[in-house]
C-alpha cells in the first residue's frame, strides 16, 4: 500500500489557533479536514506538505443555520450532514440531490463542504452548486474575516484565492422566494467524478425569470459558471425555448477537454442536455402551481 511521505501533525483547537499554526509553519503546511482528497494525493506522493493542521475538532464550524437572509453552512459540515439537512433542502433541494451523488456514503461521512471547495478539484460538485446559488464564502485571517463571491474563489484547477494563513470558515447562500434548484450529473459509475454536471437555480417572479444561476463542473467553465446562459434567461418567461437557448449557450461557453471520462464533443453535449434537465426541474420547483 502506498504511504505518505513524513510530515508533522498539529491539531488546531480553534479557528484562531489554526490560523496561528498556519502562520507558524508557513506555506509548506496544509489544513486537513475530511482528508478524502488530500490524503490519497499524499499517499500517491502527489502532495507532500511538511505539516498538517487538523481542523476536524473545530466543531464551531459544523453548523447549518438560517441567519437573516442567508443560509449559512459551516466549513466543517460533513457531506452527509448537508445531504440529509432538512433545513438546507427546504430552501434548496439541489443540496440533497448533489450530495447524494458525491463520491460514496463512506466518503460523505468524512468529507467536508469547506474541504471540497478548498481542494478546488476541477470536477468538484459543490463548486457548481454554490456557483448556481451565487453563494459567498467567508474567509478568516489573523485580523478578521473577508467575504468573497464564490465566482471569485477559485483561481484555477486546485487553486483558490486563499492566502497561506487563511482558512475558509463558511459558505453563505442568499435565501430567495419563488426559487427552484436542481442538480444533474452523469458519471461513469457511482462514486466516480462527474463526466459533466450542472446545477441550476431559477427564481421566477411575476411570470418572469428574475434570477438564474447555472453552475457547471468538470468542463472547465470559467469559475464553474455558465454566465452567458444565466444572463439569457433573466427577464424572460420560463419556456422550453428559453431553456434550450440557455443550454446551448452553456455548452458553447465551457471548455471541456477529452479524457477517459469522455471526448470533448460528448461532454459539451452533456452540458447542453443536463442544463436543460436541471433548468427544467428548477423551474418546475419554482412554480409549484404548474403541478
Amino acid at each position: 500500500m502506498q504511504v505518505p511521505a513524513p510530515f508533522d501533525y498539529r491539531r488546531a483547537t480553534s479557528v484562531g489557533d489554526a490560523i496561528a499554526l498556519l502562520q507558524d509553519y508557513g506555506p509548506d503546511s496544509r489544513v486537513i479536514a475530511g482528508g478524502h482528497s488530500l490524503l490519497p494525493m499524499m499517499r500517491l506522493r502527489l502532495a507532500r506538505p511538511e505539516v498538517l493542521i487538523d481542523i476536524n475538532h473545530l466543531t464551531e464550524l459544523d453548523y447549518i443555520r438560517v441567519d437573516g437572509s442567508f443560509l449559512k453552512i459551516g466549513a466543517m459540515v460533513r457531506h452527509v450532514t448537508l445531504q440529509t439537512s432538512h433545513l438546507a433542502a427546504e430552501y434548496y433541494p439541489i443540496f440533497a440531490e448533489a450530495e447524494a451523488q458525491i463520491a460514496d456514503p463512506l466518503v460523505r461521512n468524512r468529507g467536508t463542504v469547506g474541504g471540497s471547495l478548498c481542494q478546488a478539484d476541477p470536477a468538484e460538485d459543490l463548486s457548481a452548486v454554490f456557483s448556481a446559488l451565487k453563494a459567498n464564502v467567508v474567509i478568516a485571517h489573523r485580523s478578521g474575516t473577508r467575504k468573497v463571491p464564490i465566482s471569485e474563489f477559485h483561481t484555477g484547477p486546485y487553486t483558490t484565492i486563499l492566502e497561506a494563513d487563511e482558512i475558509l470558515t463558511e459558505v453563505e447562500v442568499p435565501l430567495r422566494s419563488n426559487t427552484g434548484s436542481a442538480y444533474e450529473k452523469v458519471e461513469r459509475r457511482v462514486g466516480d467524478w462527474a463526466i459533466a454536471a450542472v446545477g441550476a437555480m431559477v427564481r421566477i417572479e411575476e411570470g418572469l425569470v428574475s434570477e438564474a444561476g447555472i453552475g457547471l463542473t468538470a468542463v472547465r467553465a470559467d469559475h464553474f459558471r455558465a454566465k452567458e446562459a444565466e444572463d439569457s434567461l433573466v427577464g424572460r418567461p420560463p419556456s422550453t425555448e428559453a431553456i434550450a437557448e440557455a443550454a446551448s449557450l452553456a455548452a458553447t461557453h465551457c471548455d471541456p477537454f477529452a479524457d477517459q471520462r469522455g471526448p470533448e464533443d460528448y461532454k459539451r453535449h452533456l452540458v447542453e442536455e443536463l442544463t436543460k434537465r436541471a433548468l427544467s426541474r428548477a423551474m418546475n420547483r419554482s412554480l409549484p402551481e404548474v403541478h
Binding site: 501533525y9 482528508g35 490524503l39 487538523d54 456514503p105 468524512r110
Partner: peptide, 11 residues
C-alpha cells in the same frame, strides 16, 4: 463508518 486508509491514526 469511515475508510481507515484515509484517516491518520493521529486524527
Amino acid at each position: 463508518p469511515v475508510k481507515s486508509c484515509t484517516v491518520l491514526a493521529a486524527m
